[in-house]
Design a protein around this nucleic acid. Structure first.
Lengths: 363, 363
DNA sequence: TTGAAAGCGCTAACAT
DNA sequence: ATGTTAGCGCTTTCAA
C-alpha cells in the first residue's frame, strides 16, 4: 500500500496541496465548502502526516528527550510517568534515555549526537558538573531536574532541598529525638543535592540547639537501598547509636529499615526514620515511611513548561523554579497505625497549599 | 549560528556532498586520504546530521515506541528500563507512552496518529482485545508484550504464564500447605494473563491431588497493592482461611503481606506467599518475597529483535517467543533469613539455564 | 481564497 | 573513487 500524502488527498479533493496543508494545519483561510471537501478526502484516504517531513521543514520535532539516571529507581520512574503525562498535555512526546550515571551518556545527550531534532532536553544530571554543562552552547533548550549544577546558568526545577531536609530533621527533633543521624552524605561527585540536604539537616540541629555529632553523618556511594542498609549498620555500631535517622532519599531509608528489622530494633520506638521522595512504596512498606513528598507533578509540569518557553523565545535568562514539598507523616515516625489517619504537613515554598491529597494512605 | 550541513562540510573539505555522506555513513568507498580530510572537516565544523532529513529520506526513524500501562508500576518501569537498554544496543531510541489502561490511548498508538515515523511499536495491551488489534493493518511492526491477545496473529513475547503459576503453586504445596489460595483472578476484561495463571494454579493443585476450593480464588479489579490487600482480607474471613497464597503479581503479594502484617499473622509460618514479576522491592521487603522471576532482559531483547526482524522483512508469520522464568525463593516461603542464601530454582522453558544470578539478595 | 514552485538536509541512482 | 542530480513529504513564500 502506497503511503497517502498531501498530493493524493489534494487530487482526490480536487484542490491543491497547499489547500490541504492549510486544512490540516488550520493555517490560512479556506472556505467552508472546500474545507469540507478536503476533510472528507482526508478521512477517506486515512491521511496521516509524515512527521519526518514536517519536522525537516519546520525544524522542530514535537519530541522532548528525558534523560534520567535509571528507570528502575522508583523515584525516577514516577517522575518519568509525570513527565510523559505533562509532555502529552502539551502535545509533545517523550524520548526516554537512561544515563545510568555515566558521564559519557549524559554528555552524548547534551551534544545531541545521533538524536532526532528535539524540542528540548530534560536532564537529571548525576555525573556532569557545571563546566561540562557550560560547554553546551546553542543547542536545543535544556532544563535541569533536581539541584542545579554550579551557578544558575541553566533553567532548572527543584524542591527547596535545604528546607526539605530541615523540615524532616525538625520533625524528628520535635519527636524528642536527640541522636538524629543523617544517611546520604556523599564523599565524591558534584552532588549538590546531598550537600544541600546535609546543610538543611545541620541547620535544623542548630536551630534546635542540638549539638552536632559528626559521627552521626553517614556517607554513601549511591542513593540505593544497599547503601542505606550498610550505613544504618555502621551507625548502629556507634557507642551511642542514633534514636532517629534522616535519610536523603526513600531508597536509603528503606535499606535502613531493613537493617533495623534484621537487628530486631523497633521503628519508631527505638529508631525513627524519615526519607525523601515519597515513592509509592513509602506508603506501603511496614512500617510505612515518613518522608518528604516533592510535588512530582509540579516538578514535571514546570520542567516541560520551562523547556517550551525556552523553545519559544531563545536567549531568556535562566530561570529556577522551586516547587512545593510537604512532610508525609507515617508510621516510621508517628508510630500510630495509618488507619487512624496520617497527617500531611504542607510546607514551603507555599505553606498551606498542599499539592495533592494522598488518596491511599492505607491499603 | 547557521546549522552545519553536508554542504558546508563538503566545501571545507573540498569534496562533494556525496563523499561526505559516504564517510558519515561508511557507505561506498573513499580513499584514506579523502576520508581523513573529510573527517577533519566534520570535526572542525562539529557536523551533526539532521535526523529528520535522514529519516524522511530513509523512511525509517530509528525510533521505537514503547507503550506500557503505567511507569509507576515497578514491573513496567523495570521492563521499560530493559527495553530502553535493548533498543539502545540496537541503535534505536525509545519513545515512551503510558496508556494508563485506556483503550483510547492504546488505539491511538496503534493508529500511529501524530506519531513520528516509527520503526515499530512494543505494546503491553491492557484494554484492547483481539478484534481491536486485528483492525490494525499495514502499519509499522508491532510486538505485543505479555500474553498474546486471542489467537497468535501478532508477534508477541511472554513467559509461560501457565507453567509459572504451576511452579509457584507447586512450591507452596511442596511446603506442605494444603489451603493454597490464589489472588488475581479477574472478573472483567480480556486479561489472558490472569486466565493462564489461574489455569496453572489449578493444574498444580490437581497434579498434587489437592481438592480445589473455589472460595480460595480471590478476584481483583486491578493488579495493584490495594487489590491484593483487600483480597487477602477477604480470604482471612473464610471459615477455613488459607495457609498459603499465590498472588498473580508482586504488587498484589505486597498488598497481601501488608494485610497479613496488620492482622498480626506470621509469614511464612501462618501464611506463605508467592508473587510473580520479581520487582526489585520483592528482594527488600520484610519478609522478602518469594516470586516468579521472568527474565526481563530476555523479554526486552526478544521484543526489540522481533520488531526489527519484522521491519527488515515484512509479511513474516507471527512469532511467539517464550522467555525463561525461575522461582526466586525468599523469606515469604523459606522462612529462613536470606543471609543464609536463597535458592533460585531455574525453570522452563530451559530448565537449568538461569538467566542471570541475583547479585544482591541481601542488602 | 487558492495554486505553483522552491527547498528543508539528506540518501541513492546514475554518471563520470 | 568521486561527483551530479533527483527527490523523500512537507511548509512556505509569492503569484494569481
Amino acid at each position: 500500500m502506497a503511503r497517502i500524502g498531501l498530493r493524493e488527498v489534494a487530487s482526490r479533493a480536487g484542490v491543491s496541496i497547499k489547500t490541504v496543508s492549510n486544512v490540516v494545519n488550520r493555517t490560512g483561510s479556506v472556505t467552508t465548502a472546500t474545507r469540507e471537501r478536503v476533510e472528507e478526502a482526508l478521512a477517506a484516504l486515512d491521511y496521516r502526516p509524515n512527521l519526518a517531513a514536517r519536522h525537516l521543514r519546520r525544524g522542530s520535532s514535537g519530541l522532548i528527550a528525558v534523560a534520567l539516571p535509571e528507570l528502575t529507581q522508583p523515584y525516577f520512574a514516577e517522575l518519568a510517568a509525570e513527565l510523559v503525562r505533562a509532555a502529552k498535555a502539551r502535545g509533545r512526546m517523550v524520548l526516554l534515555s537512561q544515563t545510568e550515571g555515566a558521564e559519557e551518556a549524559e554528555r552524548t545527550l547534551l551534544e545531541g549526537h545521533d538524536l532526532p531534532i528535539l524540542d528540548g532536553l530534560v536532564l537529571s544530571p548525576l555525573a556532569l558538573d557545571a563546566p561540562a554543562l557550560r560547554e553546551r552552547v546553542d543547542r536545543s533548550p535544556l532544563v535541569l531536574l533536581g539541584e542545579h549544577v554550579g551557578d544558575a546558568v541553566f533553567d532548572h526545577v527543584t524542591i527547596d532541598n535545604c528546607a526539605a531536609a530541615a523540615d524532616a530533621t525538625a520533625h524528628l527533633l520535635g519527636l524528642g529525638r536527640r541522636r538524629v543521624a543523617a544517611i546520604g552524605a556523599q564523599v565524591s561527585g558534584p552532588n549538590e543535592t546531598a550537600l544541600l540536604r546535609l546543610a538543611g539537616y545541620r541547620d535544623a540541629l542548630a536551630a534546635a540547639g542540638v549539638a552536632h555529632d559528626e559521627e552521626l553523618v553517614a556517607a554513601v556511594e549511591q542513593f540505593h537501598r544497599p547503601d542505606g542498609a550498610a550505613a544504618m549498620a555502621r551507625l548502629l555500631e556507634l557507642p551511642e547509636p542514633p534514636d532517629a535517622v534522616f535519610c536523603f532519599n526513600d531508597a536509603l531509608a528503606l535499606g535502613a529499615l531493613r537493617t533495623l528489622a534484621v537487628r530486631g530494633l523497633r521503628v519508631p520506638q527505638d529508631v525513627a526514620v524519615v526519607g525523601v521522595d515519597d515513592i509509592e512504596e513509602a506508603t506501603y512498606t511496614t512500617p510505612s515511611l515518613t518522608t518528604i513528598a516533592p510535588d512530582k507533578q509540579a516538578l514535571a509540569t514546570a520542567a516541560i513548561d520551562l523547556l517550551l518557553r525556552e523553545g519559544a523565545a531563545a536567549g531568556l535568562p535562566p530561570q529556577t523554579v522551586t516547587v512545593p514539598h510537604r512532610l508525609a507523616v507515617r508510621e516510621t515516625t508517628a508510630g500510630r497505625h495509618p488507619a487512624l489517619g496520617a497527617e500531611d504537613i504542607p510546607l514551603s515554598p507555599t505553606a498551606g497549599s498542599r499539592p495533592a491529597p494522598d488518596p491511599e494512605e492505607q491499603p
